[in-house]
Simulated assay, not measured.
Amino acid sequence: MTRPARDEEKYTGIWPVMLTPFDERGEIDWVSLEKLVEWYLAAGVHGLFADCQSSEMFFLSDKESRELVGRIVAQVDGRVPVVASGHTASGLSQQVEQLGAMAQTGIDGLILISNRLALQGESDEKTLATLQQLTQQLPATVDLGIYECPWPYKRLLSDDIVQWCAASDRYSFIKDTSCHLPTMERRLALTQGTRLHLANANSQTLLASWMAGCHAYSGVMANFHPQLYVWLFENWRSQPQQARRVADYLATAAMIESLDYPACAKYWQRKLGNFTTMQCRVRGIGAFNDSFFPAAVDSMARLGDEIRLQALRQ
């Protein structure tokens, strides 16, 4: 079923940060990518975030990034909206060229990376000035967003930047990685009545952030059990007691992220039959395989299946 695309609903719900499957040679595995896309969609997700940190975008060439996103957009074919980044360049002119090319892939939203806007230690004023220059030079035909990517360093957006984005009417999506409910509540107040949507990346604060008015979840754990996140988003108001149980499980299960992500997620995707390898470009997989990590992922998944079945019976 095609999701509604009205502006107030378009950037709500569950938005997995997509993995990139690689073959044994370290090249993109296109067949596995097709399986992954259909797996997300079968789970009922509301949108996809392609070519992000989980996609190992800093380890993809610009050509690979554009082909990756172009194939995803073509396969999805409007079933859900797709946003993408690939914003890895440093110089302003290179960023304009890189982002402008990504905007031509057919995506609904183009996501800027906050730490590309200024060097670590530079001021928020420099960040805003760069953002304003970039915004002026990017196509007005595509929605814009910002992701507070933690690597190579995390730059959280100042209130002035959030307010400017909201007032500009160009920005529709912020992926918040503050992991701090009061910060999200402040940002929601600053953007109230605008088209800017706040997507929480943090499972531990997720339910509380939705209760406060946050619009979406866009985090790594949707690579393990997106169905549970979809259920929680669609039922937390009508089934508050069961929603609290699901949210408590998701908050605890999200600690798996610390076990050599994205290797742990690729392990799970291989176990599901979507991926043929666990190959990563960002890290080796030997430490994951030679540890208790696989058993921990398996235990988390088994318990998650029980929680999901209980929720569906309500």
Rank of each mutant, 00 (worst) to 15 (best):
E34M: 06
K35L: 08
K35H: 14
L36R: 00
L36W: 03
E38V: 15
W39C: 07
W39F: 15
Y40S: 03
A43F: 04
A43S: 11
G44A: 12
H46P: 00
F49V: 02
F49G: 01
F49Q: 04
A50L: 04
D51H: 13
D51W: 11
Q53A: 11
S55C: 07
E56T: 14
E56R: 05
E56I: 02
M57T: 11
M57A: 11
M57V: 14
F58Q: 09
F59I: 00
L60D: 08
L60C: 14
K63V: 08
S65R: 01
R66Y: 13
L68P: 00
V69I: 11
V69W: 12
R71E: 02
R71V: 14
I72F: 08
I72N: 00
A74P: 04
Q75E: 09
D77R: 07
D77H: 09
G78V: 07
R79W: 08
R79D: 15
R79I: 09
P81M: 02
P81L: 01
V82R: 02
V82A: 10
V83P: 10
A84C: 06
A84V: 03
S85Y: 04
H87S: 12
H87D: 15
H87N: 11
A89N: 10
G91T: 08
S93P: 06
S93R: 15
Q94I: 12
Q94T: 14
Q95N: 13
Q95D: 10
Q95M: 13
Q95G: 10
Q95Y: 05
V96I: 15
Q98Y: 08
L99H: 08
A101G: 13
A101P: 03
A103L: 03
Q104P: 02
Q104S: 11
T105M: 03
T105L: 02
T105Q: 02
G106F: 02
G106C: 10
I107Q: 10
I107V: 09
D108R: 00
G109H: 00
L110Y: 04
I111V: 14
I111E: 00
I111Y: 01
I111Q: 00
L112R: 01
L112P: 00
S114P: 01
S114Y: 00
N115E: 09
R116E: 06
R116D: 10
R116Y: 07
L117T: 02
A118W: 02
A118E: 14
L119I: 14
Q120G: 05
G121W: 11
G121S: 14
E122Q: 14
S123M: 15
S123E: 13
S123I: 15
D124T: 07
D124G: 12
D124S: 12
E125G: 08
K126H: 11
T127H: 09
A129K: 07
A129T: 08
T130Q: 09
L131S: 03
L134A: 12
Q136S: 12
Q137P: 03
L138T: 14
P139Q: 13
P139A: 09
A140Q: 12
A140W: 09
A140F: 09
V142N: 00
D143K: 07
L144W: 05
L144E: 03
G145M: 07
G145H: 07
G145K: 01
I146M: 05
E148I: 04
P152C: 12
P152I: 04
Y153D: 15
R155E: 04
R155Y: 03
